[in-house]
Design a binder for these strands. Structure first.
Lengths: 200, 200
DNA sequence: TTGCGAACTGAACATTTGTTCAGTATCTTT
DNA sequence: AAAGATACTGAACAAATGTTCAGTTCGCAA
């Protein structure tokens, strides 16, 4: 034993997980209620609260079908903070989090783009690196973006200067690109949310 | 060719599939619209209709998040080579490969380590970056390694010089570390097979 | 027998979300 | 030059769905 969760709560968790797997989306509160003979959505909510407290369910408040079972196994790579001498590298104490490309903290990317040239060397983005891009045509000042200038895609830092947009390289060997905001030559594809490189 | 579905429609399908995989439930019409710059839910509906006609999407009418992809798509992120103007970003022609952290081309990493300090700045590894490490105590000359020197873990370039091992920073502000190969102070944890950084 | 917590009921209510409809701008085709 | 097709916009609407609140029932402990 040791687990203070009722059999009914378990059955509900199982139902949610199975529904999600079978048809691609979790059930609604009312669907759960119908299945278990609970007539009030609040009765179902009572169980969802319980499951969430146990960490068995993740919840997105307000969203339809927002009760989502936590995956049993953690995906991605273990992130270590500072490695301590002594105990083995992958021991629990050393694990700071998990790295999963499709679930970043700050915003999950839509695609990766291979970078050509050294114009962003100063920002640690080298020739051949891949930038992870979140599609978003409205970057904020100072963010690194992927832009299409005419026929060329380019990675630069984005600044708005009145009517104009400045695409600023981070390498003194290169000059900034300045265009009017409404230019048909300019298309902002998205912003860079991550950088990735394979070495060796 | 052969398939009469627009590149944008494909990109939307990809987004739906990925959203479903990542958070357990498909996106709403408005979420799709926001992502693709389509302001009217009916504009999104137009694409969903199209995808359903092609049999790529199953639909549960009236249900929230009712558009569910029929077939799972490839895991990982699409890697684009050079983006061509004209058709939208995620069209098949532009996809060069797929990026999956747990299946790299050159050797899959065992863990990720957060880097402290700027000693490898010249190699494009900045403070706060994560290096992806393959556990391997026998690096080749010139490879970047993670080493434990006494109690400190450090990321440096590895060189063998006769009896000695040189751990070389890539920043002129730092000095190389030289130790004898058999020193109990030195432990090579593995080699860096990738670098990863979240921006913004 | 009273009190208390677990497990709900019932009924609003507020949002979220899908649906429908009437248009429009931009193409390409006729 | 007119007719369609494509790819939407905008607005209104209704249905689906999560949230909240005030109670209720029942078993069990004090």
């Amino acid at each position: 034993m040791g687990n203070h969760l009722s059999a009914k709560a378990r059955a509900i968790l199982d139902f949610i997980a199975r529904t999600q797997a079978e048809r691609g989306a979790p059930p609604t509160l009312r669907e759960i209620g119908r299945r278990f003979g609970i007539r009030s959505t609040n009765g179902v909510r009572y169980y969802i609260d319980r499951l969430e407290l146990e960490g068995l369910i993740r919840r997105r408040p307000g969203a339809a079908r927002g009760a989502i079972p936590e995956a049993p196994t953690a995906p991605g790579l273990a992130i270590l903070g500072q490695i301590a001498a002594g105990d083995p590298v992958l021991s629990e104490e050393q694990i700071e989090g998990r790295l999963d490309l499709e679930r970043l903290e700050r915003g999950s990317p839509d695609f990766a783009l291979r970078v050509r040239g050294d114009s962003m060397k100063g920002a640690g983005i080298l020739d051949g690196d891949m930038v992870l891009v979140r599609q978003d045509p409205t970057p904020r000042d100072g963010e690194i973006v992927v832009a299409l200038i005419g026929d060329e895609s380019t990675v630069k830092r984005f600044y708005r200067r009145g009517e104009r947009v400045v695409l600023q390289p981070e390498n003194t060997d290169f000059d900034p690109i300045v265009v009017t905001e409404s230019s048909p030559q300019l298309r902002i594809l998205g912003k860079v949310v991550g950088v990735y490189r394979e070495t060796v």
